[in-house]
Nucleic acid binder design. Sequence first.
DNA 1: GAGTGGTCTAGACCACGCA
DNA 2: GCGTGGTCTAGACCACTCC
Lengths: 253, 253
Amino acid sequence: MIQKENILPLEVFMDLDRSGPIPLYFQIAQKIEKAVLDGTLPAGSRVENEVSLGDRLGLSRPTIRRAIQDLVDKGLLVRRRGIGTQVVHGQVTRGVDLTSLYEDLTRSGKKPSTKILTYKIVKADAKISDRLGVPIGSDVLYLQRVRAADGVPVSIMENWLPADFTDIKEVDLNEHGLYQILRGRGVTIRVAKQKIGARRSSTQESEILKLDKNAALLTMDRTAYDNSGRAIEFGHHCYRPDLYSFEVTLVEK
Amino acid sequence: MIQKENILPLEVFMDLDRSGPIPLYFQIAQKIEKAVLDGTLPAGSRVENEVSLGDRLGLSRPTIRRAIQDLVDKGLLVRRRGIGTQVVHGQVTRGVDLTSLYEDLTRSGKKPSTKILTYKIVKADAKISDRLGVPIGSDVLYLQRVRAADGVPVSIMENWLPADFTDIKEVDLNEHGLYQILRGRGVTIRVAKQKIGARRSSTQESEILKLDKNAALLTMDRTAYDNSGRAIEFGHHCYRPDLYSFEVTLVEK
DNA sequence: GAGTGGTCTAGACCACGCA
DNA sequence: GCGTGGTCTAGACCACTCC
């Protein structure tokens, strides 16, 4: 495989803020990412090596390295020892990055709305107890909601939250995504474990999502943890497969 | 939230190989991961801080830091500035890590087998041209296979590969996974972009997978790139949802 | 104020691919 | 042999959280 010519990024690296709160490696990564997206660094082209880039910018190699590594982890660049760093072919797809469906829809320009079907406090059964790490029989908040985009129903969402979230207001859930509300309470979701599958829809689900009987549903089970490692939310969601899918970028470590 | 007691890992860090080919940060990460899995570091417990661990092991802080960071990225640990590092609650789920279904099945103790339905060289249409980055009308290898686990059909896989892979032997595909064959040719898949969805099965698909008519299928479209960033394979796979699902761990960066 | 993780420096040596 | 990325060191200062 013939390598394309070296393309040295010019001074795309203007206005680096060396004293502000934004890390230097992050600023560098942003500049390089922008250069890839706008074609300054076309697919397959080589990226300047770490040492010389560091020299030119007056930054240490570990700082440059971290910037590039972050882009490699995002699937934007590929590195080979002894060879160099190249831009991956193929358009960039934004992977799932720990946002809720609500934010997903907002970002893609749709207008999300939520209808609450069920809002009640229930006792945790064995499964919920296991997922949330709470005792069996303890109070948990149970939500059943329908999320629509521009008025078209996209997803039925069931969620369970530990007892100390039972004071979440029903009205807030009409106006905001769940993760948005949690953030407002100082809870940051840091890790989520998801299982994505498919099944046929029930009669009720078909009615709600305006699908045929026995249509295919895309399903997702998720447990989300905050920055102390505690389970905050367990959810079982099902999506209209013609309106939603999951995009994932995998990078060999 | 009350934090649990400090639990200082003892000398779980025996036999570190300081001169071998395995990086020190990797060895450290393995030891810590093992301690989490076997309960030495229970869920919610604190992990010793970077500086003191580095001192005790006679290693620099960046080395220790890298080990811990890798585990954070895997969703095993959580960090908070000013607080410390803790073990995430909830059992560890092995995420999808850029292996093929063949390896997936082997690892979970099943016996994979493959039946080739179609093996031929076709001309790239607009879609395949776009996904593989080859000219429209150029030769590509088209495969249609059925993968079974312990004799039960799990997945129908369609794959397209660029012209220089047209010498892949049909017999090899019976015995090995596609990625396995590629590795044997010196091709390393480094990045993959996947889109996971669902749809109803066609009559033919239902027959092959031994499903009811109009059953739900879990589908995955994937483009895979090698370590030079070149597209190596595009695939459209569909799975029996009762036998297969995708597990993904997301970590806020 | 003490303890923690987050960032950054300025070097070093090695492993690998290529000419 | 040379250029590349991969690892590692021994420090430094800062931001944040808790007491």
